[in-house]
Amino acid sequence: MEVQQIDQLYGNYVPVLIATIFGFVLVLSALIGSRLLAPFSEEREKGTTYECGMLPIRRASTNVGVRFYLYAILFLIFDVETVFIFPWALSFVDIGVQAYWAMVVFIGILAAGLGYAWKKGALQWR
């Protein structure tokens, strides 16, 4: 029984591996085809950054707006929460009422956190 289950699990994820390889090969072969067919010039102007006529000063990736990080932190919290909800969602009916109320409390605490972030203006794009 156990051997069969492991066999099935393995059988299920073999296509995932093959699809990963195929996805890679698909893009790679198209790009190689493009490299063979397309013209290629060593012209210096073509290697410059796309901007409004002049060359940019400093690298573009030096500074990024801080609000992006705020959303990323909030996302991290709620993403972990959804990971917790996944196993709960499939089994709470069998466990019974206390599992449901435990999740209500859990989501309630997170909702309070969301409300606090909202009130503090972390959700407001400025």
Binding site: Y50, P56, V64, Y71, F75
Partner: peptide, 21 residues
């Protein structure tokens, strides 16, 4: 290494993670 691309990429990340939930 382009400012438009950088802003676009950051926006894509912010939007992608926000609507993921």
């Amino acid at each position: 290494d382009n400012r438009y691309a950088m802003i676009g990429g950051m926006r894509a990340a912010a939007q992608g993670i926000s609507y993921e939930l």
